[in-house]
Lab assay of single mutants.
Amino acid sequence: NQASVVANQLIPINTALTLVMMRAEVVTPMGIPAVDIPRLVSMQVNRAVPLGTTLMPDMVKGYA
Rank of each mutant, 00 (worst) to 15 (best):
V26K: 14
V49F: 02
G62N: 14
A16K: 07
A64E: 10
A34L: 04
V60G: 01
V45I: 08
A34D: 09
K61Q: 11
L40N: 00
A48H: 14
M21C: 02
V27L: 07
S4P: 00
N14M: 07
R47D: 07
V60C: 02
I11C: 03
L19A: 11
G31W: 02
I37F: 05
T53E: 08
A16W: 13
P12M: 15
L40F: 02
V41Y: 06
L17D: 00
P50N: 12
S42K: 09
M59C: 03
G62V: 05
R47H: 10
S4D: 01
R23T: 09
A16C: 03
V6P: 00
S42A: 14
V35Q: 14
P38W: 06
L10W: 11
P50D: 12
M59N: 10
A48S: 08
M22L: 15
D36R: 05
R47E: 09
L10M: 12
L51C: 03
V35A: 11
R23C: 03
T28H: 08
Y63L: 06
P29D: 08
V41D: 04
G52L: 04
G31N: 01
A48Q: 07
I11F: 02
V5G: 02
M22Y: 02
L55E: 01
A64Y: 05
T18E: 09
A64T: 14
V6L: 07
V41E: 10
N8R: 06
V49N: 01
G62K: 12
V27R: 08
M56H: 14
L10Y: 10
V20D: 14
P50F: 10
M30I: 14
N8L: 05
Y63G: 05
I13T: 11
V20E: 14
V49Q: 02
V26Q: 12
S4G: 07
P50E: 09
V60R: 01
M22T: 02
V27A: 11
N8C: 03
L19I: 07
L40E: 01
A3V: 07
S4L: 01
T28S: 15
I13P: 12
V49P: 02
D58S: 14
P33D: 07
A48I: 05
A24Q: 11
V35S: 15
L10D: 15
A34K: 09
S42E: 12
A48K: 14
R47Q: 11
M30Q: 12
G31C: 02
L40K: 01
R23S: 09
G52N: 07
T18N: 05
L10N: 13
P38M: 08
V5T: 09
R39P: 03
M59F: 12
T18V: 04
D36G: 05
P57D: 15
D58F: 10
D36C: 03
N1Q: 14
Q9Y: 11
V49H: 02
V6G: 01
P29R: 05
V35C: 03
M43V: 04
V35N: 14
D36H: 11
A48F: 13
A48G: 15
V5R: 00
V6M: 12
S42H: 09
P29W: 04
V41R: 12
G52Q: 05
N46I: 05
L51H: 12
D36F: 08
M43S: 05
S42M: 11
L10H: 15
I11E: 01
I37L: 09
V20S: 15
G52R: 06
Q44S: 14
A24R: 07
S42F: 09
L17H: 00
A48P: 11
P29A: 09
M22C: 03
Q9T: 09
L19Y: 11
P57E: 10
A24N: 08
N46Q: 10
A16G: 06
M21Q: 05
S42Y: 11
V27D: 02
V45T: 14
T18C: 03
V6A: 04
V20F: 08
P38F: 11
T28A: 09
P33H: 15
L19N: 10
R47C: 04
P38E: 12
I37K: 06
D36Q: 08
L51P: 08
Q2I: 11
P50S: 11
I11A: 01
T28D: 11
I11K: 00
D58V: 12
A48N: 05
V20A: 15
P50Q: 09
V45Q: 00
L17F: 03
A16D: 13
A34W: 05
G52F: 06
V35D: 15
A7N: 02
A3I: 07
T28L: 12
R47W: 07
T15M: 10
L17Q: 00
L10P: 14
A16T: 07
T54A: 07
A16E: 10
N14V: 03
L55V: 11
E25V: 15
E25D: 14
V27M: 13
A64R: 03
D58L: 06
R39A: 07
I11G: 00
M56R: 13
M30L: 14
D36N: 15
G52E: 08
A24L: 04
L51I: 11
V26D: 14
P29G: 05
A64K: 03
V60A: 02
T28C: 03
D36V: 09
T28M: 11
T15N: 07
G62D: 14
V49A: 05
V6N: 02
P12G: 06
L55P: 01
T28Y: 13
V6W: 02
V35Y: 13
P29K: 10
L19W: 06
M30K: 14
V26E: 14
Q44L: 11
A16R: 08
L51K: 12
V45R: 00
V60N: 01
I37E: 02
P33A: 08
R23D: 06
N8S: 15
V35E: 13
P12N: 14
D58Y: 06
L17R: 00
I37V: 11
V20C: 03
R47I: 14
G31Q: 02
Q44H: 11
P12V: 05
D36A: 13
S4Q: 02
A7H: 01
M59R: 03
P33T: 08
R47V: 07
Q9P: 00
M43E: 06
I32P: 01
A24E: 06
M21N: 07
P12D: 13
T15H: 09
V60F: 05
Q2H: 11
T54H: 03
M30P: 14
A3Q: 13
M56I: 11
I32D: 01
N8Q: 10
I32W: 02
K61A: 13
Q44W: 13
T15F: 07
L19V: 13
V49T: 05
M22W: 02
K61M: 14
S4C: 03
S42C: 03
M59S: 13
L40W: 02
T18P: 00
G52V: 02
S4Y: 03
V45C: 03
N46A: 14
G62E: 15
L10F: 15
L17W: 02
M56V: 07
P29C: 03
A64W: 05
A48Y: 10
R39H: 15
D58W: 07
N14L: 06
V35I: 13
V27T: 09
D58I: 06
N8T: 14
G52D: 09
R39K: 14
Q44A: 07
R39T: 14
A24T: 15
P12F: 05
V41G: 03
I37G: 05
Q44E: 09
D58E: 11
V26H: 15
N1L: 12
N14C: 03
Q9G: 09
A24W: 05
L10E: 12
K61I: 11
Q44F: 12
N14K: 14
L55T: 01
M59H: 09
Q2S: 06
K61R: 09
L55Q: 00
Q2G: 12
Q2F: 10
I11H: 01
P57K: 10
V35M: 12
N8K: 12
T15P: 01
T28N: 06
R23Y: 06
A7M: 05
L51E: 14
I11R: 01
I11W: 02
T54M: 04
L19E: 08
V41K: 06
P50A: 13
P12A: 10
V41C: 03
M43A: 15
V41H: 05
L51M: 13
S4K: 02
P33V: 05
I37C: 03
I37W: 02
I37P: 00
V60I: 10
Q44G: 04
P12Y: 07
T28E: 08
L51R: 15
T15C: 03
M22E: 00
V5A: 11
V6H: 02
M56Y: 14
V45P: 03
L17E: 00
L55M: 11
V6T: 07
I13D: 10
V5L: 04
M30C: 03
E25H: 10
N14Y: 10
A34N: 05
N14P: 02
R47L: 10
Q44D: 14
I37A: 06
P57H: 08
A64F: 15
I32C: 03
Y63W: 05
L55F: 06
I11M: 07
T18W: 03
I11V: 11
P29V: 06
M56E: 07
E25G: 07
Q2W: 07
P12R: 06
V35G: 15
M30V: 11
L10R: 10
L19D: 06
